[in-house]
Structure formats: structure tokens, C-alpha cells
Design a protein around this nucleic acid. Structure first.
Lengths: 228, 228
DNA sequence: CCAAAAGTGTTAGAGATACACCCATGG
DNA sequence: CCATGGGTGTATCTCTAACACTTTTGG
């Protein structure tokens, strides 16, 4: 008989979705309508289905609960401390996601539960061990930003260098020198200038760039390591 | 009623345990005695218990199957593709471990199943998706080695600079300049020279060092980032 | 005295940092 | 013409990379 004699825990996915707007770095939370932690805010997520891969479950739950569909997603870590859910043993596979708030203007209230963006440094108490998960995701975001060209996931396809710099400054919580930053980011060769400039601004219009993902993949295969 | 209506998958842990000896980088595998994949080699691991944290499960399984107890352990990633186990849906939380082969001379045959160390670049076909897990672990090892002082986990408490250099060369698969390597590793301030030298060698005895973990933790808290 | 590995400094080049002003545009 | 942000170059310094010989020890 080919089967596991051991008791099976519940398995869920939870997503830490980051976005960036003028107010800074935001995280997407949903308000729970059921016990335990009814009315508390929590990371979007839910039970996996048995015929779905883990990443698919994460995308499905996000779409159902928040309407967010187009995003960068990667696995963060798995949390399974006994007692983290008062009902039963629940293992949760946490995902880390980035969504482009500027372009898609995601309205998170399309789902069944109420969802909202909170500043990461001023978010409400969270259900379960979700604070722990959020903190880990934030550390991961800061660390990955430095050695992977991940930041562009926050931006629209066409962006200015100032937008990129502000992004880094906001997430890393540190000021950066404009000239040095531009030199560094341009010498990677990963940004290609477009034949377009910003529009509708009350000052000199900035050059627009796009991120050349193909070039990055190519360089990466040759051992290139992005660093900012 | 506070419970999950969703079907529960099986949850296991699997460990990629690395060790280093004169023959290079090794990985610890066990030979399966049951179907599926009977007689195939596989990563040590097994079902979690409902009252155990995930890391504890990993340590318990390792001790039971291979006798290995004293090791560095961290979570790697979770694999849950439907069909990865032909019996039923199984989510496995993979762990990444390093054991000091030189000092402990682990005899992996103490467990119930036969266990053995294989060169990572010459290991047998593996059961399930364990090849995928091993490959990820190897990439993680190489990448972490560069920006965390993780390599010392492979070595005895007292070691020579040449041992450290050989370790880096073996795992990163690249030659390193002796003088530059020594300069770099010593200027971190994380290695403290002991009042001892190597013994029983047929040539000039080398200075012994130990890794100052406390210093690392202290520096890390101040924003220091190890890099080699 | 020979074999084997330990140990040690300098120079040139690349990359990082610090720093301030003029330009273009819209209102 | 003014306010706003866009855009640019140089000098210094620090870190990295390349490189070869002498010393110690045991056999």
C-alpha cells in the first residue's frame, strides 16, 4: 500500500504583496471576516487545492481576494510552527510579490473581502504570525533590491531615472547621490533610453527608459551579478 | 466550527546535507527500501509530526536515518508540484544543511536505511524531484558562501587559512590567489589566530585560527555585510 | 638536503565617493 | 521670469587584481 500513515496538516499560501506610490512602500492586506482573528488584518492567502502548484494557489488566492493579477511572485519561506493557527496545524507557504501600483492602479476592493494598501512602516496588528512573515519579506525585499534588478517590477514599463532613484531611496531608507546613482545604473547596460520623454510635467521633461530583461538574462548566464 | 474544509496534503521535509572532505564536496543520500523508487537514492527526510516545528522534523529525520545530529540547518524552499510523488499530493519543505565531516567523521550507517556520501558532481539518479532540490541547494550554497561566513560550518573549530581557501576553491569551482585571499579574509576581523599551530604535518606547521561568530553577529547588527 | 606547504608586499588599475552648477519647460 | 526638477564631469580615494620568492619543518 503506497500511502502516508502520518496525519496530514492543512496547507495554505500567504502573500506579501508590495507596491510603491507617492506615499512610500505599501503592503496589501485583507480584513478577515471569520474567526479566528475576525476583523483583524491579514496577508491575503488561503488553502491550496490538491491539483494546483503552490505558486498557482498563491496567484489564485490573490486574484480572488484582491483582484490583483499581474505581478512578480516568488516563494519566500514556509512557516509551520505548531500553534500558529489556533484551529489546527497549518503549514503556510509564504510568497513575496511586487505589483506595479502606478500603471495598474489596482483597486483591491474587487474581491469578496475588503482589501487595502497600508504603509509598511505603519500597518495595523496582523493575524496569526503574519507580522513575522511581513518582516521577513521586507528584509528580503531590501536585500534582493541590492543584488537583483527587482525594483523595476514596481515601475511602469517606461520610467525615468529619478523614479528609479526614488524607489531605491524609499525602500532602502537612505539617500543616494544623483550623479553616482545614474552612472551606476546606466553602466549596467540594462536600461535602454527610449525615443520618448515624460509628458504633462510642469518642468523639463525627463528621458524615459525601459528595463532590458533579455539583456539581463543573457548577462546573468555569463556570470554577471547585478549590484547597486 | 473552526476548521479547514479543504483536503489536506501530506507534508514532508527533505534535507540536502553537504560535507567536505579531501575528495571534494559531498552530499548525504539514503537508499530507499520501499516503493516508489525502491533502491533509488534520495535525500534524507520524511513526514512531519503534527506537534513538531519544521526544522525539528528535519533534525529528527536526519538523526533517525543517518545518525547525523550536529549541523547547520536552514530552510531552503518548498516543493509541491502535483504529481511529484506518485502516491498522493505531497508538499515537501526542503532544508539545506552543512556538517563538519573532518571533525565528526559521521558514520551515516547508524540509521535504519543505508546512507552514503556522494560527490555532488557525481551522484546517482535521485528519487522524486530530488535532483531539482539538490541543484537548488547547490546554487544556494555557492551564493551564500560569497556573502555569509557560512563556510566555517564545514571546518573543525580550529583551522588553517589554507583549509579555508581550499574550501572556497572547491565549492566555487575557481582558483583563488593565495595572498589576496588571505588579505581579504583576515581584514574582515572575523578570524582570530590561536596560540597553536597544526601538528603532525610533514612540512612547516600552519597557524590555526577560529571563526569569531560573536564578532560577526555584532558587526552584522551594525549593518556589516560579509563578502568574499 | 630535499620536498612540501607556509607565509609575506608592492604596484597598477578599476571602481566608488564626494561634490555644484546650468538647462529646459510650463505656468 | 520664476519654480521645478533634469541633466552633467572631475578629482580623490579605496579596493581589487596581478604577481614570485623566502621560510620552516619533517623525513
Amino acid at each position: 500500500m503506497y500511502s502516508y500513515e502520518y496525519p496530514h496538516p492543512a496547507v495554505t499560501v500567504d502573500c506579501v504583496v508590495f507596491g510603491l506610490d507617492d506615499g512610500g512602500l505599501k503592503v496589501l492586506l485583507i480584513q478577515r471576516d471569520l474567526e479566528p482573528f475576525a476583523l483583524s488584518w491579514a496577508l491575503p492567502g488561503g488553502s491550496i487545492k490538491l491539483d494546483e502548484d503552490l505558486g498557482q494557489s498563491a496567484r489564485r488566492e490573490l486574484a480572488e481576494e484582491t483582484g490583483v493579477t499581474d505581478l512578480y511572485l516568488e516563494q519566500l519561506a514556509t512557516f509551520g510552527k505548531p500553534g500558529r493557527d489556533p484551529r489546527e496545524r497549518v503549514i503556510t507557504v509564504a510568497y513575496f510579490a511586487i505589483v506595479n501600483l502606478l500603471e495598474h492602479k489596482v483597486s483591491p476592493d474587487t474581491g469578496a473581502r475588503s482589501a487595502a494598501w497600508f504603509p509598511v512602516d505603519d500597518s495595523p496588528p496582523l493575524a496569526f504570525d503574519h507580522r513575522l512573515i511581513l518582516d521577513l519579506a521586507l528584509m528580503r525585499l531590501q536585500s534582493k533590491l541590492r543584488n537583483q534588478p527587482l525594483g523595476f517590477e514596481f515601475l511602469p514599463e517606461k520610467f525615468t531615472l529619478t523614479q528609479v532613484q526614488r524607489l531605491y531611496e524609499t525602500i532602502l531608507c537612505e539617500g543616494l547621490d544623483k550623479r553616482n546613482f545614474r552612472k551606476k545604473i546606466l553602466t549596467t547596460g540594462l536600461l535602454v533610453p527610449l525615443d520618448e520623454v515624460e509628458i504633462d510635467v510642469a518642468h523639463r521633461a525627463a528621458q524615459l527608459y525601459r528595463f532590458d530583461k533579455e539583456a539581463y538574462v543573457r548577462l546573468q548566464a555569463q556570470g554577471y551579478a547585478f549590484e547597486i
